[in-house]
Every structure is written in C-alpha cells, then in structure tokens.
Amino acid sequence: MDAVLRAAAIYLFLLILFRISGRRTLSEVTTFDFVLLMIIGEATQQGMLGDDFSVTNAFLIIASLVVMDIALSLFKEHVPAAGRLIEGMPMVLVEDGVPLRARMKKARVDEYDIMEAARRSQGLENMEDIKYAVLEVSGTISIIPKK
C-alpha cells in the first residue's frame, strides 16, 4: 500500500510543480537544465523508494506510476477540459513576421528564442521570414515560414 501511495504522491506533486513552473522552465534542455532534471530525479527517487530497496517495491512503484499515467491520459481523452488544464494550449507568438510582444513577455520567450528556433528548424535569418511562430504545449517553438 505504501509504495502505491508514495508513487501517487510524487506523481501528483511533480504534475502540479511542472504545471506551475511554466512550460518554458525546463523545456529548452541546456546542459544545466539537464543536470537539474537529473538532480530532481535523484531527489524524487529517495522519497519514492523510502528505505525499501527490494525488487518488489521497485516493481510496485513503476507499475503505479505507469497506471497513473495511463489513467491520466484516459481522463484527458474523456474530459478535454481537464486535458487543457493539465497540458495547456498552444499559442501564436509571431504572426506574419510581427512578434506579439505582450504574449512573449507573459510566456517568458524572447526574440532570441524564436529566432533560434527559426534558424534551427527552418534555416530562417529574419523575423520577417516567419509566418507563424507557435509556442507548443511541450514548451518548444514551432516555426512556419513564409512561402
């Protein structure tokens, strides 16, 4: 029982924490973000396993986490509003070469981030070449170039 409850508590806490921190916080995986994610993983692991290092405990925790993830995805499928709440929605940041600065400021994205995504995915050099830049649910920026 303890293993399932531990896994559930950690799952919920991380779900809320990552929702609160905003999608941009750990989305662009720089080296430091990667290290930070690893440290979060380490800290989580201790709390989840407790002092029970048995294989059974590991099985139970992994199974609980996967079950909760499946349950959540089913829930999101049946209640789209909940899905939006948990994952958020995509949003346009640049339209016809014009950056929507009020949105960018709120979403903590700057022009450098957008141009980086434009260079990397489309090889674009100028803001004017971007038809749309979309901040996706995952926190990445998609670029649709002008034809």
Partner: peptide
C-alpha cells in the same frame, strides 16, 4: 494580443491562457 484568440494555425484560448 492577450484577449483575441486565433483559430489559425492553431486554436487558441487566450482567456484560458
């Protein structure tokens, strides 16, 4: 910018956002 939701290229909901 913060009020008007677009429906192209993606469907937005700015009030929710």
């Amino acid at each position: 910018q913060l009020r008007v939701s677009r429906s192209h290229p993606i469907r937005e909901d700015m009030s929710f956002q």
